[in-house]
Computed example of a mutant assay.
Amino acid sequence: MTCARRARAAEGFSCGQKLTARARTAWPRLAAVHVRHCGQFAHVDGELAAGESIKLMRLHYGGSVTTWGFALCLATPGG
């Protein structure tokens, strides 16, 4: 694994940790937050207490752990 790839993996892990910590205080109805990485994107899903998974947002990695683009997922079925 190259240094750049290792750094991106660490920053992705940090992103997941920050979202999980934020979910505890801001989104108490979420039982868990799941982050999947695909290239420079992080897809964030929330898991409700009943086990239902909902798409929350997509983040675009901007080169550092503090720089991310942001897109909300629509709350409509199929959105």
Rank of each mutant, 00 (worst) to 15 (best):
M1T: 09
M1E: 03
M1F: 11
M1P: 08
C3K: 11
A4E: 09
A4S: 07
A4P: 06
A4N: 09
R5Q: 14
R6G: 06
A7C: 09
A7I: 14
A7Y: 00
R8Q: 15
R8D: 15
R8Y: 13
E11V: 04
E11W: 10
G12N: 14
G12S: 15
G12D: 12
F13I: 14
S14Y: 10
C15G: 01
C15D: 09
G16K: 13
Q17K: 12
K18T: 02
K18P: 02
K18M: 09
L19D: 04
T20F: 02
T20C: 05
T20R: 13
A21S: 07
A21M: 04
A21E: 10
A21W: 00
A21N: 06
R22I: 07
R22K: 15
R24F: 02
T25W: 08
A26R: 07
A26E: 15
A26I: 05
A26H: 15
W27N: 12
W27Q: 11
W27F: 08
P28Q: 15
P28G: 04
R29W: 01
R29F: 10
R29N: 01
L30E: 04
A31Q: 13
A31F: 02
A32T: 03
H34G: 06
V35H: 07
H37K: 13
Q40F: 06
Q40H: 05
Q40N: 15
F41C: 08
F41D: 01
A42M: 12
H43M: 14
H43P: 05
V44E: 02
V44A: 05
V44F: 06
E47D: 11
E47N: 04
A49I: 00
A49F: 00
A50F: 06
G51Y: 00
S53F: 10
S53W: 08
L56D: 01
L56T: 00
M57L: 14
M57P: 07
M57G: 00
M57E: 03
R58Q: 08
R58E: 04
H60E: 07
H60K: 10
H60A: 11
H60G: 12
Y61L: 03
G62Q: 10
G62M: 02
G62H: 03
G63I: 08
G63E: 01
S64N: 13
S64I: 01
V65G: 10
V65Q: 11
T66P: 01
T66D: 11
T67S: 13
W68F: 04
W68V: 06
F70H: 11
F70G: 02
A71V: 08
A71Q: 06
L72R: 14
L72I: 09
L72W: 11
C73F: 11
A75H: 09
A75M: 08
A75N: 05
P77Y: 02
G78L: 04
G78Y: 03
